[in-house]
Amino acid sequence: MSTPLASQLDRSYIARQLEALLSIPSPSGFCMEIINYMVSESTKLGYLLETTPKGNGMVTIPGVNADHTIGITAHLDTLGAMVRSIKPNGMLRFTPIGGYAMHTVEGEYCLIHTRDGRKYEGTVLSTKASVHVYSDARDWKREEANMEIRIDELVKSKEGAEGLGISVGDFISWEPRTRMLPSGFVKSRHLDDKASVAALLGLMEWLKREGRTPLHTLKLIFSTYEEVGHGSSYIPADITEMIAVDMGALGDDLSATEQDVSICAKDSTGPYDYQMTSRLIELAGREKLAYAVDIYPHYGSDASAALRGGSNIRAALIGPGVHASHGMERTHLDAIVNTAALLLAYVME
Results as ranks from 00 to 15, higher is better:
R177Q: 07
G99I: 00
V155D: 09
K87D: 08
E153S: 14
D170Y: 02
T104W: 00
V105I: 14
A161F: 09
G90L: 02
I86E: 01
D139Q: 09
L154A: 15
C110I: 10
N89W: 13
T114L: 07
L181E: 14
K87S: 07
P176G: 01
G99E: 00
R177Y: 06
T178N: 08
A161P: 04
N146F: 03
W174P: 00
M102F: 11
M102E: 07
M82I: 15
T104C: 02
G107R: 04
V168S: 02
D170M: 06
L164V: 04
L125R: 09
M102K: 06
S167T: 12
M147N: 04
H132E: 12
T123Y: 00
R118A: 15
V124H: 03
P176L: 01
T95H: 11
L164R: 01
Y134C: 08
I149T: 05
V131D: 12
W174Q: 00
S130H: 11
R84N: 14
S173P: 13
A161E: 05
G80L: 04
L125H: 13
A161G: 03
T104P: 01
M180P: 08
E162F: 09
Y120M: 11
S135H: 10
I86F: 02
G107F: 05
K128E: 02
I151R: 03
G122Q: 05
G98F: 02
H103T: 05
A145L: 08
W140L: 06
I149Q: 01
D116G: 12
L92Q: 03
L111K: 02
G107C: 05
P176H: 01
S167V: 08
W140S: 08
H103G: 06
V133T: 15
Y109T: 05
E106L: 14
G107Q: 03
L125P: 03
V124I: 11
A137D: 01
G107I: 05
Y120S: 13
P96Q: 12
V155Q: 14
A145H: 09
G122F: 06
E153V: 12
A137I: 04
L79Y: 00
I112F: 08
K156C: 15
S173V: 10
M91A: 11
A145V: 05
G169N: 11
R179C: 12
Y100C: 02
Y120P: 09
T178D: 14
M102I: 05
A101N: 13
G90M: 07
P176V: 01
Y120E: 08
E148A: 07
L79G: 01
K87W: 03
L181A: 14
L125F: 09
E108N: 11
D116Q: 12
G80T: 07
E153T: 13
G122C: 06
V124S: 01
Y120Q: 09
Y120R: 09
I86S: 05
Y100A: 02
Y120N: 08
M91W: 09
G165C: 09
D136I: 09
L154F: 15
A129V: 00
G117P: 07
M102Q: 06
T114V: 12
S85G: 05
M82Y: 10
L164D: 04
L79Q: 03
E162W: 04
S135G: 10
P96V: 14
T95K: 15
E153N: 14
I151N: 04
L164F: 00
A161K: 06
L164A: 06
G117A: 07
I112C: 04
Y109R: 08
E143P: 05
E106R: 11
T178C: 13
S130L: 14
T123F: 00
E143W: 00
S157Q: 15
Y100K: 01
